[in-house]
Design a protein around this nucleic acid. Sequence first.
DNA 1: AATGAATGAGCGTTCATTCAT
DNA 2: CATGAATGAACGCTCATTCAT
Lengths: 210, 210, 210, 210
Amino acid sequence: METQFSEKQINILEVAEELIAKKGFEGTSVREISNKAKINVAMISYYFGSKEKMMGSLYQYRVKKTRENFLEFSEIIKNGNPEMQMKEIVKFIIKQLFKFSYFHGFVTQELRAGDNLKIELTNFYKITTNKLEELVEKGVTTGVFTHTPKSEDLLTLILGSALFVIRNKNFYQQFVPHQSEADYLKEAEKKVCTSVLLSIFATLGYHQAS
Amino acid sequence: METQFSEKQINILEVAEELIAKKGFEGTSVREISNKAKINVAMISYYFGSKEKMMGSLYQYRVKKTRENFLEFSEIIKNGNPEMQMKEIVKFIIKQLFKFSYFHGFVTQELRAGDNLKIELTNFYKITTNKLEELVEKGVTTGVFTHTPKSEDLLTLILGSALFVIRNKNFYQQFVPHQSEADYLKEAEKKVCTSVLLSIFATLGYHQAS
Amino acid sequence: METQFSEKQINILEVAEELIAKKGFEGTSVREISNKAKINVAMISYYFGSKEKMMGSLYQYRVKKTRENFLEFSEIIKNGNPEMQMKEIVKFIIKQLFKFSYFHGFVTQELRAGDNLKIELTNFYKITTNKLEELVEKGVTTGVFTHTPKSEDLLTLILGSALFVIRNKNFYQQFVPHQSEADYLKEAEKKVCTSVLLSIFATLGYHQAS
Amino acid sequence: METQFSEKQINILEVAEELIAKKGFEGTSVREISNKAKINVAMISYYFGSKEKMMGSLYQYRVKKTRENFLEFSEIIKNGNPEMQMKEIVKFIIKQLFKFSYFHGFVTQELRAGDNLKIELTNFYKITTNKLEELVEKGVTTGVFTHTPKSEDLLTLILGSALFVIRNKNFYQQFVPHQSEADYLKEAEKKVCTSVLLSIFATLGYHQAS
DNA sequence: AATGAATGAGCGTTCATTCAT
DNA sequence: CATGAATGAACGCTCATTCAT
């Protein structure tokens, strides 16, 4: 069983996540976090040991949530045919990325601290690639897919495209009609999702089952 | 005529680029940079005005180089058929990203200060998407491509995938046999390049001209 | 209700006052102050916000005290005849200047930052000139004074002479027999006080009431 | 014979004098001075040895000028009667103070460097007090003065009052109708001169010769 | 269990000065 | 003789953390 966080800790983590995503780990001071979370500045060291360890906890917290969500979602759709499952999984992953774009926008960059954290993330990737691999195989077996790209490359395509859009708003927003920030994210997600699905299914050599 | 940098300045910029890529802008102190570049700490303010302005210079220096390289390369291959040009351009872009992975790995992340810098990068993207669009159209005209995906989505796929691999070494290296760090980068580039080309051409509905 | 300073703050202010009087505001570093006050250098920012704001606090602290003392003293002597009151007030003002010579020796010099501080000092001067004016009028009415010099010129004479002596020790000490630094200040105060009283009463055209 | 300064050195000194008077010695950087004087920053060390020594030179330069002026002026008026000479000398001293208020406004404050400079200033004071003493004696002899105040106290009154007005513009300007900065100085000089003369002559027990 | 006070270290920057030319 | 480049030291300040309560 892993560490459980108290409500107060989770509150701190979520405030920290938002600030760190905006301003980077080093660019965010514990005073800022404690002000926004309306707690004493000493609390962060008190609860997590240090700022770096708080970062580790944040990491752990978010990855764990994401993994749980992924497994749960996989379970729900497990009875569908492989092409439907593939589509839903791609949509799900991209949705999660946009939902926690705060987190995913910075996370790969700031990994200096614990190697165990890197492992944890890698494990999560493992689960995902395994699932993708399974679906590709099934699809080939049932004849809807004709190619067998490597699952790590599929995942790279999905995560890479979505993260690029999240991080490069300045570039991508000129192609996305939108009225507000929130609006943009919704529309950008839709657009990148469509585009990624197109590429993934083309890469898989998808053709409708006869 | 744009600003030219002296050799000493370029030395500082390249040291800074590497450190900032590893540890972020805020995470890298001017003392670290000056130590590694074997210069006095005061030189950074002396040469660039401030740490922030040094960042701007680094930005300008690298983006300018990249744009020039791209335009030059486009010129060289302009007489080939569209499918060859497309292939070469994708390879070229990914090669550049890996070559200056230090820079491209952090650049989109750390942009808070100068908005004109964002514009500069966006302009670079514009040049690239225009080229891609042109090639797609030509390919459709000559009959080698059957689909017309949006150029910004193609670029997103290329840049996103390559950057993801660069930034997520921990994930991707388990799929890339390699002996050293340098070796890894070479092999990873090869692998992601192959994979991206596959997806791009699939997405374009490429089939050999009869 | 105005800001109250803690004992520790007052300790810092008094150390700062002495150093700044000797070496000027810019010439005194926060490290010097913190060393002499045996506190951590960060405390100055911690307690006062910044070095400049500390200067403002010092200002406020000393001017306030001086004004309160003056008003209190005025109250005590208010029942005396005007010539006695005039004499006592001159003596009191000079005594205060010598007592807080550290402060009064530099204060007018170093005022660049807060204009509200200038106003505060000016207000203090106002209180004093009003009192002097009142006494001159009373003295003329009772017939002990025959001239009515402007109160601002009287104050200028008093403050100017005393401050000049405080600041130009090198000049004035050759006319004041003394054995030690402290001794000098005592004797110098006595001498300048006598001299100023002489000039003030001569200027007022004082002659004993018949 | 004392050190003579070249034209370039004098130019630097005069620029420095103005800046230092405004912002203090420590508050004025050699870069500021060199910018305003349109010379290279290294010139100050080059010409004077150091910033502190430049201060010493400035001091020497101004005091010497002032002393020469005083002696010259004394010579001119030496044939007048003592009361006229006294009046003219007071007016002359105050005029000089206002003319070089830049210098005289800061000079007593910033004396840390050479003790020989202090001596030089003290010597200047000596010349002045001697002259004042001589005039008092003459006046008593001719019967126009009835009191014999100490010359150092007379000088203190004159210099103290004038310097106080120069330094405490915020206080004194409310009593001086004026339209501009320059205008103020002119009017303030006039006012303080009148007032000081009044006090000096009262203190001397002046009454017109019969 | 929680906090306000206090700390030492390090930050980016600017300083007066020196040095090679 | 004069200067632009470069330097080490010090600047005021903010940092994450600790400690006494």
